[in-house]
Design a protein around this nucleic acid. Structure first.
Lengths: 323, 323
DNA sequence: TTGTATGCGTTATCAG
DNA sequence: CTGATAACGCATACAA
């Protein structure tokens, strides 16, 4: 076990006081050039790294960010979170932050976890995903002045906190436009029940692009493959049925794909591995970039004190043989 | 922002010295019953939680465990890590640990990260995945006496450190046996090149169960859907071709499935979402349990000082229409 | 059984 | 520009 090298070790090695070393680290402009260099060499030679715990006790900053890891539901859309987490971890490191994971069964449990994490580990900030209307988590954090960013805009109170989001409506609009350009005139939509911000966005992108007479081509259901099957069967059995379907998720799209006859075009959302394997056209979110922007925003609040502006990213349509 | 409640706050509230509070927490048997109760009430009333940073400075224990989050490759098998991570997070919390994430491009970068994490955050231990022959990471950690557990046994040096693994050979053996019982006599195998511990295990499970004359039914390729397609095409074009294929991964199985004629049975490995959607028979690893046992082992070393025994878990075969 | 003193590694304040 | 000193919250010898 290598001996612990502290600021005192460095000071001794460079023939200065502990304070000077600290100054080189935190306020280098206060230290004479020559001394600064000597200290820096000692730091490099000894491989010194400031101990976070000690630093935290003085500064109150842990350089730790927390994010929730959700249980994988049907796993199809689960890979989205996976890629987002990886992006967060990669973006946080160069900014001097680390990512702490926590699990929570529901919003209430999540708040209890915030409380615990804050009290014990003094986390610097949180990244929230899956935001929704009347989200109690954001108000809890905001009330206590805890820095956080959401991936997903604040539904309801506009811009009440920093957020990063993907333009969901633009995604389904692009899919719908692509289908129209392919000659489809009756384009249906399978989405989630109204009320979920993301779901409503995705529906509106389709509704605004599909054309005027689409009211009877809209179906709402909870997410899932079998649910997608049922909705597609229903939609395709009406008189003058749609020849193409836009779906709010790949799970729904997979279901629709399995029951639709080959002539019917299908587009999903999230560009999951399943879509890739099945050859399903799907809307891809720039997850790595979204994660990086979340870190940027949080780091801005924490380090710069800047009031960060919301970020809206454009999704892209990945075209495959299904549409 | 709620005022910080420290051990002193509790002491004042309970009319005792700070020390007594600390004793109630760490050595309760030294404190008189009545006093103990009074202090505990104060702790509950104030919602006191020991500050980790301060505790760490005294004890040298951060109660932080680190695990690497890998980039999602084709995403098909990526969901495995996702579920494992979630299991880790859930199992760690009740044991009083939190999970820290890190990313690393390769083993060398990973070791540099260990060094950094250890120096700055004084991590208590690591959970390693994707172990392989001649793994430099385990020897680096072992040399420095850093506690760690691997998910995947130590290939090469047997039992040189605590590990949890799934019996890969039993998994492919179960798949092969199932195919034999379904009447198949020529059962092929598509796996990875020899040398990867996991891959070799999976191959041996098939080889030992497939029957005597299977030497010409073995194919090795790197992982991937198109690679699976190529290998399956090759295998199915020989004279007296196999009527069933066991694959070392769902990625390979998906490839095989797309090129094989309907009569050919296919079994994959990992029970990924893609397998579920395609109706692919696949070997499922008990990932949540594996994660929980990793935490158990690590907590045993850290808290109990027990020399933990390796854990080998049984996979299960999920039978679907593909076989 | 309870209280007092000290130090973990850092940074901030303040003299020199 | 540099160096001494205190304080962050906690746990551990030690004394009462």
């Amino acid at each position: 076990m290598a001996d612990k090298v502290t600021i005192a070790t460095v000071a001794a090695h460079a023939n200065v006081s502990r304070q000077t070393v600290s100054n080189v680290l935190n306020t280098p402009h206060l230290v004479r050039e020559e001394t600064r260099e000597r200290v820096r060499e000692a730091i490099a030679a000894l491989g010194y790294r400031a101990n976070q715990a000690a630093r935290l006790m003085r500064t109150g900053r842990s350089r730790l960010l927390a994010v929730r890891i959700e249980p994988t539901r049907d796993g199809i859309n689960g890979s989205v979170l996976d890629r987002f987490l990886h992006g967060l971890t990669e973006a946080a490191a160069p900014a001097g932050y680390r990512i702490l994971l926590y699990a929570a069964a529901d919003d209430r449990a999540e708040i209890a976890t915030y409380d615990d994490l804050l009290a014990r580990y003094e986390l610097d900030g949180f990244v929230l995903t899956s935001t929704h209307h009347g989200d109690v988590r954001t108000s809890w954090l905001a009330e206590r002045g805890v820095p956080f960013v959401t991936f997903g805009r604040p539904w309801g109170a506009p811009d009440s906190h920093p957020w990063v989001d993907v333009d969901n409506a633009a995604g389904t609009a692009a899919a719908t436009r692509h289908l129209r350009e392919a000659g489809h005139r009756r384009i249906g939509f399978i989405g989630w029940p109204a009320g979920s911000g993301v779901g409503d966005e995705r529906r509106s992108g389709w509704a605004n692009t599909a054309g005027p007479d689409h009211a009877d081509l809209d179906r709402a259901t909870v997410d899932g493959v079998v649910e997608g099957e049922a909705a597609a069967r229903d939609l395709l059995s009406i008189s003058d049925p749609p020849t193409a379907l836009v779906c709010a998720s790949d799970s729904l799209a997979v279901g629709a794909y399995t029951v639709a006859s080959p002539g019917v075009a299908i587009a999903g959302f999230d560009d999951t591995p399943v879509a890739r394997v099945l050859g399903l056209t799907s809307v891809a979110q720039p997850l790595a970039e979204a994660a990086a922007r979340c870190v940027d925003l949080l780091a801005g609040v924490l380090d710069g004190g800047t009031a960060p502006r919301p970020v809206l990213l454009e999704p892209s349509l990945v075209i495959r043989q299904s549409a």
